[in-house]
């Protein structure tokens, strides 16, 4: 299997007084062409890991390769294959988007092809305003602009830090649909986000990180099934009251859901009530991740 990013037993201790251990035996592999979401509380080690894989800081111990190249010893070579989009994309506000693009492409040492960049601007719905200074853009547009520059480049790996920060619901959907297109074009996407719906729709896998370690890597669905307790959702109406009632009942481990359903439905019918809706569902990714990380802490 070919890994785009492969980290083994990474440890990073910041030489402060007292020293801070940001990563402890950190292991993570990301397949080429996939999307992996890093989830974890602030201070979990996500940024430190990203900075090590970009070759900006050195690990204290362990090894890491990005497309087979060690970023600690060959950061410039790694930089040709990786684009990083910080949570607030760094764009010169006084320059137009075209000027910013020209500057960043020069910085990335990539050939300038105005037509292909225009295509990407079009995909991110920016082309009609690309001649305006970036400072006139809304927060969401600036975010899209940062992403457009990175995805317009030829690099194979995209590292995104909070790509939906400041975007409204529609903006998130627009970014999501474009990123999914680029995912199918073979780009590998590694991103950190606190927007669980975005994570669920983009990530093939999620990596749960806490205290400088990767606790688990799996698909969002598998993670929910494994750690989320199923619950019954009932909506019913009682005869003496026109009001609707909604109840969510967690199914305890080892107890069959049919048993609880029978018991509950019988109780509603005995009171002359009408059952409007009954469904069994998994809790949201957000609540599973929250309870998982709380336990891990």
């Amino acid at each position: 299997m070919s890994f785009a990013i492969h980290a083994e037993h990474l440890r990073k201790t910041y030489p402060t007084k007292p020293p801070v251990e940001a990563l402890t035996d950190f292991n993570l592999s990301i397949e080429s062409g996939g999307a992996l979401g890093l989830l974890g509380p602030n201070g979990a080690g996500k940024t430190t890991f990203i900075r090590i894989l970009l070759g900006i800081i050195l690990p204290t111990e362990g090894s890491i390769t990005v497309m087979g190249v060690n970023p600690s010893t060959h950061p410039h070579q790694v930089a040709r294959n990786v684009r990083f989009v910080p949570e607030t994309p760094y764009l010169n506000p006084r320059w137009t988007l075209w000027e910013n693009a020209r500057y960043w492409f020069t910085l990335w040492d990539e050939p300038w092809n105005r037509e292909s960049v225009a295509n990407v601007f079009e995909q991110f719905d920016l082309l009609n305003r690309a001649k305006e200074p970036v400072k006139r853009y809304s927060r969401g547009m600036q975010q899209r602009a940062g992403l457009a520059l990175a995805f317009g480049s030829a690099a194979k790996i995209m590292v995104l830090d909070e790509p939906t920060l400041g975007l409204d619901v529609l903006g998130v959907q627009e970014v999501l649909s474009v990123l999914n297109i680029f995912k199918t074009k073979g780009k590998t996407i590694l991103f950190a986000s606190h927007d669980m719906r975005f994570v669920e729709e983009l990530a093939d896998h999620i990596a749960l990180i806490a205290n400088g370690r990767v606790l688990e890597v799996s698909s969002a669905t598998n993670f929910r099934q494994k750690h989320g307790r199923e619950r019954l959702k009932l909506r019913y109406r009682l005869p003496d009251n026109a009001q609707e009632f909604t109840e969510e009942i967690p199914i305890p481990p080892g107890v069959s859901s049919e048993e609880i359903i029978t018991q509950k439905v019988r109780s509603i019918f005995e009171r002359g009530g009408i059952l409007l809706e009954l469904k069994k569902e998994l809790p949201s990714l957000e609540s599973v991740v929250t309870s998982f990380l709380r336990t891990a802490r």
């Binding site: 607030t88 994309p89 760094y90 990335w108």
Partner: peptide
Amino acid sequence: DSSEASAFLASPIGVNALFA
């Protein structure tokens, strides 16, 4: 600001991007 720094430093010319 480590985010802003990373955008510059993670370029093929590394820290020279900031210098430029």
